[in-house]
């Protein structure tokens, strides 16, 4: 039985796809058989971030409509043999997804994989709803910014009331918060909400803090999940997040402004 993880946020552009790609690759690199599904029907992008856009033949909607089977549609990652990508359809709309269809695909994937990562579209409409409906775990992605935090809170409410687990009165979805595009320097200047501020409002366990980093754009330019860029801050932050997801207790990095000398270190106490 696979564990189903939804990466969600409400707001667009906060780093859901980057996070889904990084978490899926991170889990696969640690030996878990992992698949990652793009739920953003009509605006598919996961294949681009994963660097497999030219290998897409069949997609998620084809599988739901039984125009192709899973084996034909899943794309095996060239860097990690444990990782498979199920791309979204670019030509259909979100109505092509049905609850039964998504459920059937997830059930079939569950037999073959340890983890299924669902990359949610932005918004709270059908695609986002179906991406979270069957989830066991949720990674809620938020920037330290007002509209993003507000939308994340809204999404947390939906996770706890509209999911399959909520409807069946089962144990609720296990939620994790991932704060992305964090700039410790701006936080220190009082120009950005701190991790503590965001945690105080959203009240979820913190999976990680991904610093604002050039590495994220560079990696997406090249179609490489940033978690593979082991020398970069964002790559390391995602590695930490994967470790924490798997139960390791690691201290959070990239939260403080590191451009300090001896004095700074003394002040931090």
């Amino acid at each position: 039985m696979a564990r189903i993880i939804v990466v969600t946020s409400g707001k667009g552009g906060v780093g859901k796809t980057t996070t889904a790609a990084a978490m899926a690759m991170g889990l696969a690199l640690r030996g878990f058989r992992t698949s990652v599904i793009d739920f953003d029907v009509g605006l598919r992008n996961l294949d681009l971030i994963m660097g497999c856009e030219r290998r897409v033949v069949y997609d998620f909607v084809n599988v739901i409509n039984k125009e192709a089977n899973l084996r034909q549609a899943l794309i095996r990652d060239k860097r990690c043999e444990n990782l498979y990508i199920l791309p979204a359809s670019q030509t259909r709309d979100k109505e092509a997804l049905t609850r039964e269809g998504v459920g059937a695909v997830l059930e079939e994937l569950s037999d073959d994989f340890d983890y299924v990562v669902c990359d949610s579209p932005a918004g709270i409409e059908k695609g986002a709803y179906l991406a979270m409906y069957y989830a066991d775990d949720a990674i809620v992605v938020s920037n330290p910014e007002v509209s993003s935090v507000r939308d994340a809170d809204r999404m947390i409410g939906i996770l706890s009331s509209k999911s399959r687990r909520a409807e069946l009165d089962e144990e609720p979805i296990k939620e994790h918060l991932l704060v992305t595009r964090y700039s410790p320097k701006r936080v220190e200047k009082g120009e950005m909400l701190s991790v503590d501020d965001v945690l105080e409002i959203l009240a979820l366990p913190l999976l990680g803090v991904i610093p604002e980093s050039q590495a994220v754009l560079t990696a997406s330019n090249e179609g490489v999940p940033v978690v593979l860029e082991e020398k970069t801050d964002a790559g390391q932050a995602y590695q930490d997040a994967v470790s924490r997801y798997l139960g390791e207790d690691l201290p959070h990095r990239f939260i403080y402004n590191e451009k300090k000398g001896l004095l700074g270190r003394l002040f931090r106490g």
């Binding site: 200047k189 009082g190 909400l193 409002i201």
Partner: peptide
Amino acid sequence: KSANVAKRRLEILV
């Protein structure tokens, strides 16, 4: 600081 303003507004809104 603007971060404090942001936090106060968010608390009310949320």
